[in-house]
Each structure stands twice: as C-alpha cells, then as structure tokens.
Design a binder for these strands. Structure first.
Lengths: 221, 221
DNA sequence: AAGAACACTTACAAACGGTGTAAGGAAAGA
DNA sequence: TCTTTCCTTACACCGTTTGTAAGTGTTCTT
C-alpha cells in the first residue's frame, strides 16, 4: 500500500488524519520535528505528502517548493477554509491539489487516490519536446492548449515520447496497442498512426512523427 | 490557483486572453479542438469556462447548454456582437455572466474573480451519506472505490444528494435532466432511475433511492 | 525508367456505450 | 378485485472508436 507522510502541527487534526488514512490501509508517517522537513522527507520517500500550510518554523509554501525541487511525489496541501489566496499560491508553487480543513473523509480519500493514480509509476506529465503528455489520461498539452487523445492515439504517442528521438519499431508499437509483437497488423497500425498525426496537427504539431523507412517511427524534437 | 478553460476560435483574441489570465496567476487551458468540447471539458474540469459565442463547429449557445448539463462550473460568455438578445439568450441557457468583446482587462478579471467567488462555496464533492459525489465529473466515491456515472445518472443523483433526506419531485428531476419541468416523460425518467439504481448497486448502494408514491424520490441516509 | 516494396489515405462496417421509446409486468392503494 | 402508479426489459438510434479493405503515393533498387 502507498506510503503517506503527514506534515501538520495541530495535534488533533494530525491524529484524525492518521486515523483516517490508516483505516483506509495506507502506511502513514507523521512528521513531529518541523526543523528539517525536507531532508526527513527525502529519507522517508513517501508516495504522497499531506502538507499543512500553516506551520510553526517554515511556511508550507517554502517546504512545498523545496519538496518539488527534490522531485518527491505528489503534494496535497491542507489549508483552512477561508484562505483561497493561499490555496492558489500553493498550487502555483507546485502543490498538486489542495483541500480545505476541516475535510470530509471521503473527499480526502478520493483526492489522495486520485493523486496517487495520477502519479503512479511515472511522472504526471512526460515531456515531448514542444508538448507534454499525461500518460494516464492521454491528455496532450501544448502551451495553454490541451486535447484528449483516444486510447490508441495515446498509447502510440506515449511509446514515442518515452523513446523520444529514438526509433520505435512497429513491433514495439504493436505491443503497446494490442499486447503482442507476434503478429502485426501493419495496416491497422498504419491507420492509427495516420489518425494520431491528424490529431497532433490540431495543435500545430504536424511532422513531429517521422517515418524511418523499414525500421519504424521516431518523434522529432 | 483556479483553473480556467478558454473556448475561443479567434487566435489573437485567445492568446490575449491566455496572456491576461496567466499573468493574473490563473492556470489557463485553451481548447484547440472544437469537436469534442464538452468531453474535453469534463476531462479538464476547470473552475471556470470562458466561452465565445461564435464558434466554427457548434454555436456557443449549444455548448453552453451541454456544459451546464454536465454540471461544469461557472461559464462566462464572450460575445463580440453587443446584442442584448444574445446575452440574454446566453444567460438563459445557463451562462453565469457575459462580457462583450473587446474586453477591458480589469473588467474581465473582476468578473472572473466575482464568478469564482460565487461558486467557490460549492464543494468539489458533495456528501451522500454513505458515499460522495463529485458533481462536476459525476464520479461516485465510496470508501476507496470510485465509479464514473453517465450524464443522466449523475444529474439525477446530484439532485437527490443536494436534497438529501428530502423528497425530490419528478418535475424537479425532469428539469435536471432536460431543462424543463413542463412536459415530463414519466417513462424516460423512470428508465433513467432504474439505470441509476442498477449502477449504484455496483458499489453496494442498493435501496438508497426510496420511492415516495405519487410524490417523487428520496435519498436515504 | 520500371518494378517492387513500403508507406499512406480514405471509406466502410462492426462494436460499444448512452439514450429514448414502447410494451408489459409488479406493487400499492381503494 | 380493480385501478393507478411504479418498475423492468427489449429494442432502435446515435456518436465515438476501432479494424478492414482497397486503392494511391512514395522510395529504393536494378
């Protein structure tokens, strides 16, 4: 089960959170010493951080920033209800979601599950050069635009992005699409590629997928 | 920070909006593909939608209606023709505010802030007793399980949850589903209720929807 | 330059999910 | 029992995604 670290100075709140999360089956660690939070975090290497904004020593914001710099997993910010500005600030600094206190149990668990799913295994967004791809939802981002790919389009693009600037063979793509590299339906793959290219061009990303005759495809950039 | 999605086909206008909003600290997403706007919207789950009336594929009005049907948050309509009729029409279809183009920067930001404040109170997740419902995505949460409802299922359940333990009349539900309480297709409503009940039972939530003969339905719990 | 191998496009149909319609069965109340 | 109200099931329609099939375009080799 996932490991969650709680950073919250209010004891009652903390215990309640610990209780909820443990009952939900998570491995919970609550930080008691607020001096070297970031380095503690690196040691603990949690799958998710529950971070209160109002902390004695350091502001939650700074910690958030440092944690993000250390590339530690998703951060769920906790804030008292009435401070919208803080919340905005928090997300801007890299928190991945926020929640107002006091928080509904289901809501908390739902957000956590959501975040964990988003961050499971891989980064939430993988870099395609001139665009980004959310490999879980198959959402394509370019600048401020975004676009939802179909399943097949997403699988192909994901494979290409993960091997950016390298040649991806047809059998590899076939495996991504249908789970087998044994038999390749060349044509079906081809059609799906055409469709992906057409979709990409909607974000002015034409010519990003290069054909290497006889070998496969490569994502430029 | 709040997430805003822009639906605007005029590139210059769009970029200007994006620029203004980003500088104001919002997380901005602009839609480029005008084919599946509504489904994209569901994915993006923005806190506010900036919607142009004049769009290539579909009229902004229709989209507005669909978006409202999906229970996606506040819609700020943009119109270049400063025709009162259109604006009224837009508001009638569910837009929460409107603005004429070209729009003054401060005015735009003020309206947005206003709308966000108005809708801020509405929780991202509403409590149904033994479960929770995200009224935007129509995702149903129970413990650690979750389940995506269809549009109609979501609308009905939302109406019931928002009036938990109270009787919700058929005409109210009809309004939620089709926007009118004038004519009620009793049977269509009935079928949708059956389907919702069946879906709920997948999360062991059978018998949650109670029938009050001759009056309507009530969510137990 | 011509043929072959490879890559691409387009149109079509099957499959799927969500929805409304229609018809008949079940339950509640008089 | 009879009538009203509610429920269930089967069917058809629509839109999206996907695979199939057929034909066109391109590149390489001789």
């Amino acid at each position: 089960m996932a490991r969650i670290t709680i950073v919250e100075d209010d004891v009652l709140m903390r215990e309640e959170l610990v209780d909820i999360l443990q009952k939900a089956g998570y491995e919970v660690m609550a930080i008691a010493d607020f001096h070297n939070i970031v380095s503690q975090m690196v040691t603990l290497a949690p799958d998710l951080v529950l971070l209160d904004i109002n902390l004695p020593e350091q502001s939650g914001f700074e910690i958030c920033k440092s944690l993000k710099a250390k590339a530690i997993g998703p951060i769920l910010m906790l804030t008292s209800r009435d401070k919208l500005q803080d919340e905005l600030h928090g997300l801007h600094l890299g928190a991945d979601d926020y929640l107002t206190k006091p928080c509904n149990r289901d809501r908390l668990l739902a957000r956590i599950q959501n975040l964990l799913r988003r961050f499971e295994g891989q980064p939430g967004l993988i870099d395609g050069g001139s665009f980004s791809l959310d490999p879980n939802t198959f959402t394509l981002y370019k600048g401020s635009q975004s676009l939802l790919l179909s399943t097949n389009e997403g699988k192909i693009l994901k494979a290409l992005v993960e091997n950016r600037s390298e040649i991806v063979s047809k059998s590899t793509l076939s495996k991504c699409l249908w789970g087998t590299d044994q038999y390749i339906d060349e044509n079906a793959l081809q059609v799906n590629l055409t469709r992906l290219r057409k979709t990409l061009s909607q974000l002015n990303l034409e010519n990003k997928i290069e054909t290497i005759r006889g070998q496969g495809y490569r994502l430029k950039g």
